[in-house]
Amino acid sequence: MVFNNQLLPESLAPHKKVGARATMTNKFAREIARMRRIEGQARGIIRMMQDERYCIDILQQLAAMEAALRAARMKVLNIHAKTCVEEVITSQDKAEQSEKLSELIALFEKMGR
């Protein structure tokens, strides 16, 4: 399957809606692939711990995984801003706009902790 001029494995291909909810949407295809790589990093760190590898090596891998998670979080936030938030801004619905702004403020407060 080709998405954004990239060939994606079938497991990452966007799915159509099934009933009331989508099993996967194309806007998250790259982030799902990113999260699968992070999942692999976590499994590697577990193996390092099971093998009782040097603590500094484990800590370095944990730091790399944390950086990858931060990057994924920022990418999803960017997608949210370009889709959900932009849609509400253009809708001219003041109540929805206020709700989205409150959601973002709450999110930034959590991210700042």
Rank of each mutant, 00 (worst) to 15 (best):
V2F: 09
V2K: 05
F3W: 04
N4R: 13
Q6W: 02
Q6R: 08
L7A: 11
P9G: 08
P9N: 10
L12D: 00
L12H: 03
L12C: 01
A13L: 11
P14K: 00
P14V: 01
K16G: 14
G19C: 01
A20N: 10
R21F: 09
R21E: 04
A22T: 14
T23E: 15
N26K: 08
N26H: 13
R30P: 09
E31D: 14
I32A: 10
A33K: 02
R36E: 13
R37T: 04
R37P: 06
I38P: 00
G40K: 06
G40S: 10
Q41C: 01
A42V: 05
G44L: 05
I46K: 03
R47L: 10
R47E: 14
Q50V: 08
R53N: 04
R53V: 02
Y54M: 10
D57V: 04
L59M: 11
L59Q: 10
Q60G: 13
L62S: 07
A64N: 12
M65C: 15
E66V: 12
E66D: 15
A67S: 15
A71M: 11
R73L: 11
K75Y: 03
V76H: 05
L77W: 07
I79K: 01
H80G: 11
H80F: 13
T83V: 14
C84F: 07
C84R: 10
C84I: 02
C84V: 03
V85G: 01
E86P: 03
E86D: 11
V88W: 00
V88N: 01
Q92G: 12
Q92S: 12
D93S: 04
Q97L: 11
S98H: 05
S98T: 05
L101P: 02
L101D: 01
S102Y: 01
S102Q: 08
E103W: 06
L104W: 03
L104V: 08
I105R: 09
L107K: 08
M111Q: 04
M111N: 00
R113G: 08
